[in-house]
Amino acid sequence: MLRSLQIEPEKCTGCLQCEMACSYQAEGVFNPSKSRIKIFTFHDEGRFVPYTCTQCTEAWCLHACPVEAIVINEATGAKEVIDDICVGCKVCTIACPFGTVNYNQETAVVQKCDLCGGDPECAKACPTQAITYVDSDHTGLERMRAHAAQNLPQDNA
């Protein structure tokens, strides 16, 4: 069963525990700027939105890579960067239309969410279950409904 990160922004309090956990897992330091998941802040609405790679089927990053440095982990479905192969050309960072592949100037390779190999730290660190790791088939529907509702003409005015 393929699982994916389910993100429910309405439950997020903006505590940044996920960013700390991600940074520690990925880079060995507690530094939100190194996190693969980011919390975006909407002060006017009093809302926080966690966002990271959706491991999309299209995988623009993977198709744009000139040296086959982004591969699919068959067990998790994650698109993973192989640091030793990545040359740091950054084409994937401009190709990903969700802005979730970033170049790290210190390591000179790109970084993105790899689902921690199937046990994502962000989901474990989230105290309000705004980020959960669930059966892929169960994500999306509510989101799509809400998105559709938000895009209705009367809401857009």
């Binding site: 429910e8 922004p9 309405e10 980011k38 975006f40 802040t41 909407f42 609405e45 809302r47 939105v49 966002y51 969700f98 802005g99 509510e142 989101r143 409904r145 809400a146 998105h147 509702a149 938000q150 809401d155």
Partner: peptide, 20 residues
Amino acid sequence: RIMEAYLANTQAIGHNAGVM
């Protein structure tokens, strides 16, 4: 605020999200 502009217009956030 490019990410926020994108998320505000594509994700279900805010009071009209209707999923709470």
